[in-house]
Amino acid sequence: MEVVIMNFKKKASALALCAVLLGTSIAPVSAATHEKIAGANRYETAAMIADKMGDYETAILVNSDKSLADGLSASSLAGKENAPILLTSKDNLPAATEKRLEKVKKVYIIGGKKAISEKVEAKLAGKEIIRVEGKDRIATSVEVAKLVKGAGTAGFVVNGFTGEADAMSVAAVAARDKAPIILTDGKTMPIDPDVYLYVIGGEKAVSADLELEVDGERIAGENRYETNAEVIKYFYKKSGTMYFTKGDGLVDALTASSLAKNDGIAFVSKNSDKAVLRNRGSLIQVGGMKQDVLDSVLAGENLEDKGYIRAERPDLMRLKGSNITYEDFYAHAGDVDGKDISDKIQIVGEYDANKMGTYNVTLVVKLSNGKELKQPVVLNIYE
């Protein structure tokens, strides 16, 4: 009997794949509004993000001129303090940044004086200044972790030298969950954490031995775009809004982390897989990008409203006699204004939950403007 079930599952999966592929061509066009947050440079973009956050009394200051070394771990602190991350150069505080710091009472400077000099610090006279620094980027991440200790229940382990993209993939999650990002050399832990740890990136970045040592859960793909997609699938399944940035210009992902913490940030390039962006209500671009990259993101999108329907589990297997609902497909839907209307999703099509077989059905939701959105899915009943 076991063999029969295994063969059935293989057959069901094959049929499901065909159905999903076919569904791609007959499914309605994805609907998503497109917004843009982009200044003339990285400093202005960070400042515009701060404006979107509204009132704040605390800010995080990071130097991103040459690398994101010190800033890689800053997002968790930004989440804890509900603070924007603003950018500076070593010796000069850009006008856009200085303006956003006028009314704040507290500023965390991430990194030592070789990263952000006393000259910049002097321009912040009258404010409470807290400089967070270690002897190197790894030690700095430990100091940040100490500041957010107890705020969150999880944290992230990345390679501090080759894993900048991995750190930025979880920056929004770290801000949302106040979860420290611990930089490592990929082989040893610089701190004994008291939170559950996720290992971000493949074994070339963080060794299997280190993963075993921290007893963590690895989230990884073959490259930065795939790893980023896996992070989104894991932490932002229900998000109707998705921010997106250039995958080769990571600073925008850092500065957007506080604003995008409840929605997630996707990395894009012209040829990257855009699947995680599809069927979202809003796509929000952060930072400038080439037109061909933007075109690849918005291809096939209907920008008229925010209505969407999405099934995270389009190939569902259930035991005979099970009660089947839209929730089993991990389905979510939003109205034209982006409001969650998942509870209005219906399963349309003939199937018998008491009879073994593979059934092609459709998830359907009706929007307030009368339009119906459909998502083809496959239901496999086995015994």
Rank of each mutant, 00 (worst) to 15 (best):
E2F: 14
L17S: 10
L22D: 11
I26D: 00
V29P: 10
K36T: 14
E44R: 03
T45M: 01
G54H: 07
D55E: 13
Y56Q: 06
Y56K: 07
T58M: 08
K66S: 04
L72H: 08
S73P: 07
T88S: 06
T88A: 01
T88D: 00
S89V: 05
D91F: 08
L93F: 02
P94Q: 03
E102T: 12
V104K: 01
K105G: 11
K114Y: 11
D136C: 00
I138R: 06
V142T: 01
K149V: 12
A154D: 15
T162V: 13
M168C: 05
A175N: 05
T188S: 14
G202K: 01
A205F: 00
L212I: 10
N223F: 01
Y225D: 00
E226T: 02
E226R: 05
D248M: 11
D263A: 06
D263F: 06
G264D: 02
V268M: 04
S272A: 14
S272I: 04
N279W: 07
Q285W: 06
N302P: 03
M317T: 14
K320D: 12
I324D: 02
V336N: 11
D337M: 06
D337G: 14
S342D: 10
K355P: 04
K355F: 05
V361K: 06
V364W: 04
S368L: 08
V377D: 00
